[in-house]
Amino acid sequence: MLRIHGIARSRAFRCIWAAEEAGLPYEVVPVGFGAEHKPEVLKVNPNGKIPALQDGDLTLFESLAINLHIAAKAGAPLMPAGDDASRVLQWTLWAATEAEPTHQQWAYNTYVRPPEQRDPALARAGAEALAPRLAVLEKHLAAGGPWLLGANFTIADCNLAAVLYGSWLNGFDYAPYPKVKAWLDACLNRPAALKARKLREG
């Protein structure tokens, strides 16, 4: 039994979605914002953040690493072998290093922070910095698809779509990136994603 520490309104959403895609039994151990530095939480994530995962004797932190572990347990097609496994790692790291920082700058200054704490200039800068990354993704999807690795949905799709989920849900202008928008629509309306979204949005 996977034990996912966190709440669906955190990055634990990604891990819940991955567990649903994998078809693995899991439970969510509710740890909300503000409780991350309690001693019992620090035992599973010494960084004082959520989520964390317990899988038998294994304890993991970092949501995207957790998802790679979940996918590895499920095997193909969620986690393919060979060169495609390397492509999964590539897109997962791209999600973390290229997409997420600029996406988060836009998000925090658009809908995450209270209105009085938002800086429109930082939101615009985040959107402008995200644009060339989305252009890369648009070109990639136009050349192949429908998923990041071609014919099959993999954990790479889950990881990157989960990173971009907030912008998709909260009005980011995806009109210049129709392939990205169609891909996000397909990812985030999969049955497993809808189950995770119900926990987050409900």
Results as ranks from 00 to 15, higher is better:
residue 9 R to D: 14
residue 9 R to S: 13
residue 10 S to G: 10
residue 10 S to V: 03
residue 11 R to M: 10
residue 11 R to T: 07
residue 12 A to N: 08
residue 12 A to Y: 07
residue 13 F to H: 10
residue 14 R to T: 15
residue 15 C to P: 02
residue 17 W to A: 05
residue 19 A to F: 01
residue 20 E to H: 13
residue 21 E to R: 04
residue 22 A to F: 12
residue 24 L to E: 11
residue 24 L to I: 04
residue 27 E to D: 09
residue 28 V to H: 03
residue 29 V to M: 12
residue 31 V to H: 04
residue 32 G to M: 01
residue 33 F to E: 12
residue 36 E to W: 01
residue 37 H to E: 07
residue 39 P to Y: 01
residue 39 P to R: 00
residue 40 E to L: 02
residue 41 V to F: 14
residue 42 L to V: 00
residue 43 K to M: 13
residue 43 K to L: 13
residue 44 V to E: 15
residue 44 V to Y: 13
residue 44 V to D: 15
residue 45 N to C: 11
residue 46 P to M: 10
residue 46 P to Q: 11
residue 50 I to D: 14
residue 52 A to C: 10
residue 52 A to D: 04
residue 53 L to Q: 06
residue 53 L to S: 05
residue 53 L to N: 09
residue 53 L to I: 03
residue 55 D to A: 12
residue 55 D to T: 05
residue 59 T to M: 15
residue 60 L to W: 11
residue 62 E to Y: 03
residue 62 E to H: 08
residue 63 S to I: 02
residue 63 S to V: 05
residue 64 L to P: 02
residue 64 L to N: 11
residue 66 I to Q: 05
residue 69 H to F: 09
residue 70 I to Q: 09
residue 71 A to T: 04
residue 71 A to M: 14
residue 72 A to R: 14
residue 72 A to E: 14
residue 73 K to Y: 01
residue 74 A to H: 06
residue 74 A to T: 03
residue 75 G to W: 07
residue 76 A to R: 10
residue 77 P to E: 14
residue 78 L to R: 03
residue 79 M to R: 03
residue 80 P to T: 02
residue 81 A to F: 02
residue 83 D to M: 09
residue 86 S to I: 10
residue 88 V to W: 04
residue 88 V to P: 05
residue 89 L to P: 01
residue 90 Q to N: 00
residue 92 T to A: 15
residue 92 T to W: 05
residue 93 L to S: 12
residue 96 A to M: 09
residue 96 A to G: 10
residue 98 E to A: 13
residue 99 A to R: 01
residue 101 P to C: 12
residue 102 T to D: 15
residue 103 H to D: 14
residue 104 Q to G: 13
residue 106 W to Q: 09
residue 108 Y to V: 01
residue 113 R to Q: 05
residue 114 P to E: 06
residue 115 P to L: 07
residue 115 P to N: 05
